[in-house]
Design a binder for these strands. Sequence first.
DNA 1: ATTATGTGTCATTTA
DNA 2: TCTAAATGACACATA
Length: 605
Amino acid sequence: MEMEVVHSSQQDMDLIDILWKQDIDLGARREVFDYNHRQKENELQRQREMEEEKRLHLLREQEKALLAQLQLDEETGEYIPCPPPSAPLQSAVTPLEVTQNVRFTEENGDSMSFDECLQLLAETFPVEETENTSVSSSSNNIMMSPEQPALPSASLSLPPPQRMSPDLEQAWMELLSLPELQQCLNMQMEETLEKTTYPVSSSPEVPNPNFTFHPVTSLSDAETNTVNVCPAEFMNTFDGSVNNTVPPDNLSQVDVKASQLNANFAAEGFCDIFYPNTILEESSGQQGLEENESDTTSVISDITNKPSFTTMDLYSLSPGDAFDRDKHNMTDEMPDSDSGISTNTSPNGCSPGKSVYEDGPFGYSDSEMEEMDHNPGSPGSEYSEMFSLNFQPDDLQTAISVSALIGQPAQLQEKKPKQHKIDPAEESGHKNAPFTKDKRKKFSDVRLSRDEAKAKSLKIPFTVDMIINLPVDDFNEMMSKHQLNEAQLALVRDIRRRGKNKVAAQNCRKRKMENIVGLESELDTLKDEKERLLSEKNQNTTNLREMKKQLNSLYLEVFGMLRDEKGNSYSPSDYSLQQSTDGTIFLVPRIKKTLKRGGNRASPL
DNA sequence: ATTATGTGTCATTTA
DNA sequence: TCTAAATGACACATA
């Protein structure tokens, strides 16, 4: 089950990595959207965020420092000044240890923190001073009371190990009561029991393959329940640090060496139980996540800073407006032709400068247009009115709304509210240098004038604007009011189709851009999340490493206190301490030795 | 001359 | 079935 968690966790990380790379791939073409500009904006924004973060962090640190100098008065609930802790261990406390220390000060008696356990052992068996036993605390001898029931003697006949002394036994029980320790023991014990044939008295009440940890006999059920609970944080820490690809033995060996332990003992000793494969692979896990860090300078695209586009600017070209504009500056400030939508979506903007190109074919490929181009009809008085809305011809046609002609001006304006936008800068720029700034717009104007010219040639009595933008019903009604020939009908249909499609293409491209922008934003979010998780992982790894150190020291202490019938101490290379599922502690001969002796035997303590 | 980009158009699919 | 919308692909103009 644990491995499943580890595995799924690894899978998650892989998945995140893949998705992340995909985002990067998507971002590879983000320069399409003015990459430099948005990158600068992004950098600025990031700088601001960093500053804000630093400021908050500073505030938190100050607050923490302040609280560190205070002590919570349990009666009043107030913080009162107190001298700073002197214990060296506390100066480097990790969050986990902080919680433990808090529990320690509470002294509820039911659960002991790891530090508490170490303290207990240090006071009871002042054999050797370890870094962990330096924690100062009040006396906890109550936990060592000799009234504690004796340990089970299930295998008393087994030589040569002997039972622990009651005090030692009690200390051992306290040690084993630690949830974290139990978690380690449970996992390793399961593996050990599968590999060996030690006579372990399994508890019938534990059908679950996940061995429940039962501290020896004396503990009540309630206690058992409490100690079985393993903190979720610890579980996460543990799972997250396990590397499936590295053999546990190697890891434990290296780890133990780092702890300056007895080499032989460390190589195959009990440390394997306490030291699952962890920690050492922490850096390798991070590398996988960090390898993409440098080359993914994400760009926060600022949608909100961009002007929101109105999808229907075209209807701003009401007859009146068109008339006025056409009179004043027809070639400069008109938004992009018939649709009008493209005006704002285009980064460069579009204003028609169609006058020069009005009459030319300009790369026409339409067969219908070929014929028309050869006989460009001069616009009659009727056309002067017809194409007033959007043709904006260079010959200064008098712009008169066709809508008035067909009697639907009110309807038009009602259905499509006027949302005309003209960029002031652009407008002025065009007035000053129309032929330099309008170059970009000539293309679309040429395209527009194509249909307009066609319509002129075929004497179609509608504006292109109307042909394109009228609703189906209105369009049909309009068509029914005029007798049009085949060519005219075909052209009107084409104009409508192209016009609609042009708008659709613009919207489509706009959506595409927005999608990319959204993905970039998501990418930033994921990067932040990744940084947070990495930081959390490092913290957990640090905690785990510290805990293993303490556990190892404690184990050595306890083991060193064991004596056989003759008062001799056991060699850590010959024996190890293990605990069965029912909580019984065994002094187990190591395999290579017992094989020589002709059997594996373990004796409960 | 080449390349990147923007735009319109067509064909096709989808709603 | 028809229509509009959506979209990929292409051509063209421009910087």
